[in-house]
Structure formats: structure tokens, C-alpha cells
């Protein structure tokens, strides 16, 4: 991680920055306006990639948590923590951009569609994880508790998916299936979505590396502090 950070840390901003500008250009200048939904549909190119990044955050949290419990190395704990913070940001972005689109298209800010329900439950699990970390203090035990939650949260995801699908799937839905990636007719739409998705993933990686560096320095300062002032 450290070695990866040493070249990717300074290098990534030069890729992510112009990449994001390119994404904005594609979204607002290149992609044709969707015929039925109009201009609002363009928010999808931010909404969906943010959801990917949020989900990636969850995956990283659970894998790093398992590795931490298995190996006991603090580096994995820092990865889990940084990924949870980022996942929270992207998950919040998903929940904010969704209603902006849903209000004019569905006529409601919020519905209990399976994906919405699932996202909001994931958000609360992230929130609990971060609160646990901030209430718990900085000792090694809290890192273990957080790791347990990170793993259990990941185990919960398939159950949440199944139950919210069944929950709403049994009722006739007023609103039809959400236009997914498959609904993007124009190839430039699909390209824009995947290009923006790639940008978001790179942004996620870069922010993760920056946050990791901060957490590592914090840990080092803590260690030095303890050496100077042994409790």
C-alpha cells in the first residue's frame, strides 16, 4: 500500500482532474438529451457512478476488515476506515442526486423502490460504522469492533437485497422498472456512463490514498506522543 501510494498518490490527481473535466464535457456537451426524460436524465451520469463508488467502498471495508481480523495489521484497519468514510460520502451523493431526478420523473422525491430502500439501509450501516469509530475512541479494541461490523454488514447485503426485492416485488408497482444501463439507447450514453464510472473509481482510489496517508501520519504521531509521554 505504501509503495503504491508513493507513485499513485502524486500521479492520480493529474489523471482524475482532467478526467473529471472530460466527464463534464461528455455529460453536458456530447451526450444527446434523453427524449422522454429531458435534461434531468443527465444527472444519471453522476448518480450511477457514485453508486458504484459507494458499493466499492462497502466491498473494500469488508475485505479490509476481514484481513485486519485475520492478520492484526493496523494498515488494513486504516484501509477499512478510510473506505468507510469515502463510501459514506458517495452513498450520500447517491441519496442526494436520486431525488433531484426522481421528483420531476416519478413525481415524488422518494419511493420505497427496492434499490432506494437498499441504499438507505446501507447508508445507515455506514453511519453506524463511523459512529462506532468516533464514539469508541482510538484503541485497538475499537478497531476490532469496527471490523466485526464491517464483516457482518457485508454478510447482511444479500439478505437486504433479497428481502427488499420480495417486499416490493409482491406489490404491483405504480412506477415501472427503473431505466437502468440497458435502457441507454445511444452508444455515446453508454460510453459516457462507463467513462464517468471509471473517473469515479479513480477519484475513489485517489481519495482513499490521501486519507490513508493522513491516518498513517496520525498513527505515527500518536506513537511518538506515547513514547515521549508514556501514560
Amino acid at each position: 500500500m505504501k509503495r503504491l501510494g508513493s507513485w499513485a498518490g502524486p500521479g492520480l490527481p493529474w489523471i482524475v482532474g482532467p478526467g473529471m473535466l472530460g466527464a463534464l464535457y461528455l455529460i453536458f456537451m456530447v451526450v444527446p438529451t434523453e427524449r422522454v426524460q429531458g435534461i434531468v436524465q443527465r444527472i444519471f451520469y453522476f448518480h450511477v457512478p457514485a453508486a458504484w463508488a459507494a458499493f466499492l467502498g462497502f466491498v473494500v471495508v469488508s475485505v479490509a476488515s476481514a484481513l485486519f481480523l485475520w492478520s492484526g495489521r493496523a494498515a488494513y484497519d486504516r484501509v477499512a476506515r478510510a473506505a468507510a468514510e469515502l463510501g459514506m460520502i458517495f452513498c450520500t451523493l447517491v441519496l442526494l442526486t436520486g431525488p433531484i431526478w426522481a421528483r420531476p420523473i416519478w413525481g415524488a422525491w422518494w419511493t420505497w423502490d427496492p434499490r432506494l430502500t437498499m441504499t438507505v439501509i446501507l447508508w445507515t450501516i455506514y453511519a453506524a460504522y463511523l459512529l462506532l469509530r468516533s464514539f469508541g475512541g482510538a484503541d485497538e479494541a475499537v478497531a476490532r469492533y469496527a471490523a466485526v461490523l464491517g464483516i457482518v454488514g457485508a454478510l447482511d447485503i444479500p439478505l437486504i437485497m433479497i428481502s427488499v426485492r420480495l417486499w416490493r416485488g409482491m406489490h404491483p408497482s405504480v412506477i415501472g422498472a427503473r431505466p437502468g444501463e440497458g435502457g441507454l439507447a445511444d452508444p455515446s450514453m453508454r460510453f459516457t456512463l462507463f467513462y464517468t464510472g471509471l473517473c469515479f473509481v479513480l477519484l475513489f482510489v485517489w481519495m482513499l490514498l490521501v486519507r490513508l496517508r493522513v491516518l498513517r501520519v496520525e498513527d505515527e504521531i500518536e506513537a511518538i506522543h506515547r513514547r515521549i509521554h508514556p501514560a
Binding site: 450501516i125 453511519a127 453506524a128 462506532l132 464514539f135 469508541g136 479494541a141 469492533y145 461490523l149
Partner: peptide, 25 residues
């Protein structure tokens, strides 16, 4: 977990309720 950290009265529901949502549904 919650018995070993600060703010334990709040933390247990915060930790448990999102996780049991599929069970509750």
C-alpha cells in the same frame, strides 16, 4: 461490543437496527 464502549445506550440500537432490517421486513 456496545457494553465496552462509551455511549453504549445509543450505540446498540444504532448498530443493530440497520442490520436486522431484512429480518424485520
Amino acid at each position: 461490543i456496545s457494553v465496552r464502549i462509551r455511549a453504549r445506550e445509543v450505540m446498540l440500537p444504532l448498530l443493530v437496527l440497520p442490520l436486522v432490517s431484512p429480518l424485520l421486513i
